[in-house]
Design a protein around this nucleic acid. Structure first.
Lengths: 226, 226
DNA sequence: AAAATAGAGATTGTTCAACAATCTTTTGAC
DNA sequence: GTCAAAAGATTGTTGAACAATCTCTATTTT
């Protein structure tokens, strides 16, 4: 029942300023990669043993992941991998709708070549039918967008948002290929930006995000009814 | 030397699901109110005793505050109240410049009456020479702006940003009265919004934030040279 | 047989005590 | 006065313990 824990690679004595930080990033990765699925319970003793740390240190890591909303802590019940719902999808898009168009419209550090590069990589992944590769390239694209704000805080927030996004996909077992038809949308944005039409690009992205949210919510609702 | 610790009100046996959460919010409040100044060292044993919790629980709270960048942890050296510098000021305004104009321009939950109310309160506080009251009203104004995005994540981020802002003010001992002449700027924004000119309001706020950042950086530089 | 109840067992929340690793201060030599 | 070494203090982490709470099972009740 708990075999999954044993598959987590143990810390190979590498240097890490704070073990709790290492624990958190290890679990974060496990969850992002879908090896720990939404809803899974994370038993303290079992996980502590598997990771080779004490329960106290593990709990410090849990505190971090809890603040990132990657896990859900229910007092006296335990820790669970968050399983995002419709409200979370709406929240994700409320954040993206605020930040990303603003970054395109007036972000001081807009790097159009970097965006173009992400599109090239996304197209290559699409051609090779490499779905994870497409997801990665798409993520890099949107990270580059947020980087235009010049804020590490926003970049970090975006990282958390995209992590939660992956949880949404993991909890929808039969997600269709959303990524592939976003590639050309992103390309259209880059074309607008290349010709200096930043406001138009922002407006267009706003529209894209609205339809993407609607599509995701629609698919989520129907996947819940099953 | 450590008398300040004894002035922290102890937890009066109130119910709090997680003590570490209570510890974090207690310290957060102490810092925001300027009772623990930037640069102060927070000794684990002394603080744990003062708060009436164990060192382990206190450290869980530290983990939280560290992720919020309110404290700075130096391995094997200790925990210090963050003392923000010019880079932090720039970061704060990079975030605000992204989020706040976007909220005004296309935030779906814009509440103009709430903004107007914050202005009324700010003017009352200004008339009464109540500087903390003005700071509070100003904070409520900008929180209402961010609330227009409909995102609790962004609201929380804004809360952290404004907390760090207070640290900036606390570290500049002789800060002139920045708040008072922002009140009328905010009022101008509300006037634009009331007449439906959301894009103009966003553009205007963008300009305000630029000048505010420049003013703050300017004052910070000169206060450092002393 | 189904539902309610009680109790045993397991898990979480928190504390305490200990120890290695690292930093800081003191001491002592030059 | 400067530098190095030892003593002392603080942090990082662990392990064990115990109360509070939840979960599951077995028993009783209807």
């Amino acid at each position: 029942m708990n075999e999954i824990y044993t598959s987590i690679p143990l810390g190979s004595g590498s240097t890490h300023a704070h073990t709790s930080t290492w624990v958190a990033s290890t679990l974060r990765q496990e969850i992002a990669q879908g090896r720990l699925l939404p809803g899974s319970k994370l038993s303290e003793q079992a996980l502590a043993d598997a990771l080779g740390v004490s329960r106290n240190t593990l709990r410090e890591g849990f505190t971090l992941l809890d603040s990132e909303l990657i896990i859900t802590r229910i007092p006296n019940r335990g820790v669970f991998v968050s399983s995002p719902g419709a409200a979370d999808i709406r929240e994700i898009y409320a954040v993206r709708r605020t930040i990303e168009p603003a970054a395109l419209a007036w972000g001081p550090a807009l790097d159009v070549p970097a965006l173009a590069q992400a599109i090239v990589e996304a197209r290559a992944a699409a051609k090779a039918q490499d779905v994870p590769g497409m997801a990665d390239a798409n993520q890099r694209f949107h990270e580059s967008v947020v980087r235009a704000t010049g804020s590490v805080h926003l970049l970090e927030l975006m990282g958390r948002i995209l992590a939660k996004m992956r949880l949404v996909f993991h909890s929808m077992s039969d997600a269709p290929d959303f990524h592939s038809h976003y590639v050309e949308r992103n390309a259209a944005l880059v074309a607008l930006l290349a010709s200096g039409q930043r406001n138009e690009a922002a407006q267009t992205l706003l529209g894209y995000l609205d339809t993407a949210e609607a599509e995701l919510l629609d698919h989520y609702e129907s996947s819940q009814k099953i």
